[in-house]
Amino acid sequence: METSFAITGKGYVIVAADTTAARSIVKMKTDEDKIKALGPHLLMAYSGEPGDTVQFAEYVERNIRLYQIRHHYSLRPSAAASWVRRSLAESLRSRHPYSVNLLLGGYDEASDEPKLYWIDYLGTMTEVPFGAHGYGSYFALSLLDRCVKKYLVISGALICHSRYHNPDATLEEGIETLKRCIDEVAKRLIVSPSKYKVKIVDKDGVREIEL
């Protein structure tokens, strides 16, 4: 079943999505890329109704690119996320709404901060330290939650169990946390995805890594 995760850390956002293209009970393809680079510092993982997802992602990609060409700089992650949310909200109120869920991760060069936005097909948007969509979210979120709770209790003292989510984790620690999420989903979900694509955005831009 479709699953995507994203987690922020110190100066980066990791975005991961499964690579399965399925129709009914049949896997049609297992190397589908569901993460688009919308700009030099912006990533978007999309999931939902097949067809809608690709159509909407391309629409967003072209519009973000158009803004970049017109103004000689990219939209900041927060502005891009607001625009995408608005597009979905307008679509929802049209005759044929897109049914697409998104994770939008970017690096804001103006404030030197990683940013992550969780957006769903109803036009809900929240800025989050980590997020997930699909069946995998039921397993991964509870895992990632453990640290945030601890983090709040200690409040200020930045001692955090690095195996769970930590907003100040290094990239290596972040990747380890992501692996834990993927393993958890593999262990508990009935039809868990076999492969994931993982992309990272930080001050140096966007890149893909192999787990």
Partner: peptide, 12 residues
């Protein structure tokens, strides 16, 4: 501001 939830850049 409505579309981007961000103040308009001056040049824009």
């Amino acid at each position: 501001l409505l579309t981007y939830n961000d103040d308009i850049p001056v040049e824009v």
